[in-house]
Amino acid sequence: MEWYLKVIKNYTGFQGRARRKEYWMFALVNAIIGIVLSIIDAIFGITLLATLYYLAVLLPSLAVGARRLHDTGRSGWWLLICLIPLIGAIILIVFTCQDSQENENSYGPNPKAAAF
């Protein structure tokens, strides 16, 4: 939950780098909350809660995605590759699963090195 809240608090932070753990923990908690809200929506026959939630986390999701790509040495604009059906999502998953660049890159210092 700590990683999720860190991303939510830094919702406009498109600068810098995000570790794999930060990105994937946010994605996990985001998915769990989305599933729970979708189930609640289905029980009551509405689509309001999940829709409002996903709109609320759209900007933080884009920000952490861009920072994750920065950590692998890529521009945040690579998020647009998801617009290519199926192949784009697969490529983005591969990019986000890759390890950080070990040294400082043009987006900032390695957050892994700062954690030790």
Rank of each mutant, 00 (worst) to 15 (best):
K9V: 13
K9S: 15
N10D: 15
N10W: 13
F14A: 01
Q15I: 12
Q15L: 10
G16A: 07
R17G: 07
R17W: 01
R19F: 01
R20H: 10
R20I: 08
R20A: 13
R20C: 11
K21F: 10
E22A: 09
Y23F: 15
F26Q: 03
A27C: 13
A27E: 04
L28Q: 07
L28C: 12
V29Y: 15
N30S: 14
A31Q: 11
G34V: 07
D41K: 06
D41R: 08
A42P: 09
A42R: 14
I43L: 14
I43H: 12
G45C: 11
G45D: 10
I46C: 02
I46Q: 15
T47R: 14
L48T: 12
L48N: 02
L49T: 07
T51K: 07
T51P: 04
L52A: 15
L52T: 09
Y54I: 07
L55F: 15
V57F: 12
V57H: 10
V57N: 05
L59Q: 08
P60A: 05
A63N: 07
V64R: 01
R67L: 09
H70V: 00
D71K: 01
T72G: 05
T72D: 03
G73Y: 05
G73D: 01
R74F: 10
G76H: 06
W77S: 03
W77R: 00
W78N: 04
W78I: 01
L79W: 01
L79D: 00
I81Y: 06
I81K: 04
C82M: 09
C82W: 04
I84G: 04
L86A: 06
I87K: 00
I87G: 06
I90F: 05
I93Y: 00
V94I: 15
T96K: 03
T96A: 06
C97D: 10
